[in-house]
Design a protein around this nucleic acid. Sequence first.
DNA 1: AATAAATTTAGAATAATTCTAAAAAGAGAA
DNA 2: TTCTCTTTTTAGAATTATTCTAAATTTATT
Lengths: 128, 128
Amino acid sequence: MTKYEKQIYEIVNSSQSHLTAEQVFSELKKVYPAVSQATVYNNLNKLYGAGRIRRVSVEGSPDRYDRTVKHDHLVCRRCGRLTDVCLEDLTDSLKRQLGGEFFSYDLKIFYICPECREKEAQNPARQQ
Amino acid sequence: MTKYEKQIYEIVNSSQSHLTAEQVFSELKKVYPAVSQATVYNNLNKLYGAGRIRRVSVEGSPDRYDRTVKHDHLVCRRCGRLTDVCLEDLTDSLKRQLGGEFFSYDLKIFYICPECREKEAQNPARQQ
DNA sequence: AATAAATTTAGAATAATTCTAAAAAGAGAA
DNA sequence: TTCTCTTTTTAGAATTATTCTAAATTTATT
């Protein structure tokens, strides 16, 4: 583990907020101002490949990197914002249904976040 | 609904295989050879916004467009291939846990597909 | 120290998607 | 019809996210 890999792991795992590669990059620059973008991508891929961080893709926005600690995501269909939520674990149920092992699962729930719902209530015309 | 929108809807909804925008484009060109790429993106976004097709994002590969008919996805951690699978419906359970309504949910299960497992068994060195 | 292997770097390249502004197509209303 | 208005399409440029490349640097091994 290089110092960069270690630091990137720290950044992702101590953040509550599923960072984009760009955001990890700017956090890392606070510690190592000369680091390059490619190093961030290299190490995020390495950590993800090793299962030490989670990668979450959201339709229409860059991938995010997240702690591996079990949790699910609410995704706003209007603004795309991600919110953590902790729901009943599905591992056993999925194992039973699939009849075999798997790495992990990713559950996203699409909704309208309170902010966007508020906006739409004020201006119903722009509703989709 | 324009002829393009209608045709794109048909293409996505009659395919079994979560097409990329690129793939939808080449299907559409079979019917309307002069159509442009932007039309495909415009209409996919429109149909998705209206909830008439599903959009599935997979880490590290372009978004895919899919029938809205309820099903879940297995994602191979090695080759990225998507496979449809039909698991127990979570709607009621999620409503209860979240205490409210939502649009839809998306469940992806990460595993190693039979082909990649086979390859790894033959050449264990390259295992990650 | 010398050699080899892995990592980092800057910048170019690629890929997916959106944007732009003009052209074309539809859809009423006169 | 013809005029006007709105929507959609188009080609190509622009943007964004990410990967690739090849040289330089760092780390590990002999």
